[in-house]
Nucleic acid binder design. Structure first.
Lengths: 222, 222
DNA sequence: GTAAAACATGAATAGTGATTCATGTTTCAG
DNA sequence: CTGAAACATGAATCACTATTCATGTTTTAC
C-alpha cells in the first residue's frame, strides 16, 4: 500500500446520477478490453508505462507522461487500469513471465543440472542486459507492491527448487536443503545481473558466468 | 535525483532582507549542530527518521510524521537537514557503517578464510534480523539515492575483495576472479537475509548459514 | 550580566499529479 | 440502418506535504 504522495486517500466514491443510469459497465476501470481497438490501446499504454516507469522510476513517472508516450488522452488510462499501482503490478507480472519463460527455454533440454545452472545463468544475464528497465521495475516492486515482488521471486524459486530436487534424486548434485539453496543461487544470479545494469561492470557476461558458475559448482575450497 | 512528487522544483532561492543581515549562518540547513542540545535534537530526528522511513517507506514517510515522532516542530527538521532526501542518505551511510563494523568484528580474528565466510554470514544474518528496517532502507536507496546505494555495496565489496585476495595468496581458497566472486558471495548473503525479513522464512538462521556456507565452500558438485 | 549565536516553533505557501466526469466519437450486433 | 455499448477526450478537482520564514527562546562566550 505505498503510492505517490499526492492524493493518497481515495476520494469518496462518486455515486452516479441515479440507478436510472444505464448500467454502463464499460470496460470500466481495470476491466479488459472487449474489442480489437481497446486491446491495442491497452497494450500501447502498458508498453508506454514500461518505458516511462522503467526509466524514471515509479514515483517520478506520471500518468500524463505515460499517456502522452502512448498517444492517448489522460482519461483513457483509467478505462483500462484502476490505478497507477495497477499498471505497475501488471508490469511486474509480465516481466516475471518473460524471465521464467526465457530461462525455462534455455534449460529445457539440458539433462545435467550443473550444465543447466550454467545455461540458466547465461540466459538470465542476457535477459537482464536486454531489459535493464524491467530489472529495476522488479526491485521497486518491493515498495510499491510487495505482494507482486514476493510472487515474482517465489514462482521463480519454486521452479528452482523442483529442479534441485530432481537433480538430487538423480545424484547430479551433492545433498543440501533445496529451498535455501535455491534462494542462495538466485541471489548469485541477481547480484551478477545487478553488476551488469546497476554497477555497469566492465566484466563481460561470459566471464561473470564463468566465475559465477565455478563458484556454484565447486565452491571456494582449494 | 529522484524525490517525492510534491515540490520537485526548488522555489526561487529567497534572498534575505539585504547584505545587512548578520551572517546568520546558523547550523543552518544541513550544517552539523554546535552544541550538545543541537546534537541531541539532530540524533532524535535521525532516529525517528529511521523508524518512520523504515516502516512506511520513503515516499509515505512525511516530515511531519518524523518530527512528531522525534518530538520537535516541523521547522526544526530543516535546521539539521537540507531536504528529506538528505536524512535518507545519512541513514543509508550510517547503516553501511554499522553492518561493515559488525562483520569486521565477527571476522577479525578468524585466520582461515572459509571460517571467516561462515562467521561473516552468521553475523550478517544476525544483523539483518535485528535491523529489518535498515535492510529495507538500503533497498529503497536504489531509487531515492542511487549514489548512496552504490557506495553502500561498493565499500562492502572492497573489503570482500581484499579478503579474497589475501586468502588466495595464502592458498586458502581456489583461484577465481575475486571481484566477481565478491559480488556473487554478497548476493548469497543478501538473498538469505531477504529470506529472513522479507519472505519470513521459518528456516532458522543457523540452518541458512549451514546450507549457505556449504554451498559457498563446496559448491553443488556431488 | 549581556549581546550574539544557536536552536526552536508552527502557520503559511505553493507545486504536483492522480483521479474524475461530462461530453463526444467509434464500433458492432441485429 | 440504428441504438447501445465501447472507447476516447482533456479540463477541472483537490488532497497532500516539502519547504520557508517571521518570530520566539536558550545557550554560550566574555
Amino acid at each position: 500500500m505505498n503510492s505517490d504522495s499526492c492524493f493518497r486517500r481515495k476520494r469518496e466514491p462518486h455515486v452516479g446520477p441515479a440507478a436510472v443510469t444505464p448500467i454502463n459497465n464499460k470496460a470500466s476501470s481495470g476491466g479488459l478490453p472487449k474489442t480489437a481497438r481497446g486491446e491495442a490501446t491497452r497494450k500501447s499504454i502498458l508498453d508506454a508505462a514500461e518505458r516511462v516507469i522503467g526509466s524514471n522510476g515509479y514515483s517520478d513517472a506520471s500518468i500524463g507522461q505515460i499517456t502522452r508516450e502512448a498517444g492517448v488522452a489522460q482519461g483513457t488510462f483509467y478505462i483500462y487500469f484502476k490505478t497507477k499501482e495497477q499498471v505497475f503490478s501488471e508490469l511486474v507480472l509480465e516481466m516475471g513471465r518473460l524471465v521464467r519463460h526465457r530461462i525455462a527455454e534455455a534449460t529445457a533440454n539440458v539433462p545435467n543440472r550443473l550444465d543447466a545452472e550454467k545455461a540458466g545463468l547465461t540466459a538470465f544475464l542476457g535477459f537482464v542486459q536486454a531489459h535493464p528497465d524491467l530489472y529495476r521495475i522488479v526491485q521497486e516492486a518491493l515498495f510499491v507492491d510487495p505482494k507482486a515482488y514476493r510472487a515474482y521471486y517465489e514462482s521463480f524459486a519454486n521452479g528452482y527448487i523442483d529442479g534441485l530436487n530432481t537433480a538430487l534424486r538423480a545424484g547430479q548434485i551433492s545433498p543440501g536443503d533445496p529451498e535455501t539453496r535455491a534462494w542462495a543461487l538466485m541471489g548469485v544470479a541477481r547480484a551478477l545481473g545487478e553488476q551488469l545494469v546497476v554497477f555497469n561492470t566492465k566484466t563481460p557476461i561470459q566471464d561473470l558466468v564463468e566465475t559465477g558458475f565455478d563458484l556454484i559448482a565447486n565452491g571456494l575450497k582449494p
